[in-house]
Design a binder for these strands. Structure first.
Lengths: 129, 129
DNA sequence: ATGTTACGCGCACACCCGTACGGGTATCCG
DNA sequence: CGGATACCCGTACGGGTGTGCGCGTAACAT
């Protein structure tokens, strides 16, 4: 059998029950893709810090944000572009200054769980690498 | 001014107060890196589905996992390697079969919030692209 | 009007990541 | 034993990703 051994390792289950159980309660590839792309937005130190900062002070312009994070204005600008494209942040333009804040429809669970609680997780990592 | 314009867009804050407020309650780059690399593990449909599957049926071997997810055994194997390296899953070897499950010290907040609750978020996405 | 500031944008670069493929090892079956 | 199975590993490759740089634009200051 020299097809694509891609999905053809073994054809018959070892634990047919569990396989079936897993199949029923499984998340679809589409949902997984959505979830992944959403979490992927936090999978970058700069973006994560941006969101966390905006969660605490609610409004900041690009320069001040870069200043607060001690990051390059370029990377902050790029991060904001990604987040803006994804619809997680919005920009209020006042003169030549653009004030960014979390979008009104910012996913509350994401805000609550990933931004606020998971941070504490990373702050108390007793072991790991 | 032809230095690195990296961190030197503007030198004086616009909202000195907010900048200071953000600075104090900020997450360090290290914490952000930890959080990001952790969430980055979920930023892949295959890995996310693997973890979710293992969260529901608690134990599965590689082949059955690939079978349940209808994914290639290669990608599942690769995903498991990443997760195993990160310490999120462990493998119990029984004969030639390796049964995987979530690690004992699997971050509970991650399990609770990202795996279980955030999935519901993706299932009721009112808009987004 | 002229220069400066604040920000966006596009380009080029290096880099990481997931996939596919070919092997390799240990186990089970006949 | 010998062959098939279940899985792991290393490699090569295409594609996506973050960064730095220059330039453009709009707004403010002088």
């Amino acid at each position: 059998m020299s097809e694509h051994r891609s999905a053809g390792g073994h054809s018959h289950p070892v634990d047919a029950e569990r396989v079936e159980a897993a199949r029923q309660r499984l998340i679809s590839p589409e949902d997984a893709a959505r979830l992944s792309s959403l979490l992927g937005l936090l999978a970058d130190p700069v973006r994560a810090r941006i969101l966390y900062a905006l969660d605490t002070v609610e409004e900041l312009c690009v320069g001040d944000l870069a200043l607060a994070l001690e990051a390059s204005e370029d990377s902050v600008g790029y991060g904001l572009r990604i987040l803006r494209t994804a619809g997680l942040v919005t920009g209020r333009k006042a003169g030549r200054i653009v004030y960014y804040r979390l979008a009104d429809d910012f996913p509350q669970p994401l805000r609550e769980h990933c931004l606020r609680r998971l941070v504490e997780l990373t702050r108390a990592p007793l072991d790991e690498d």
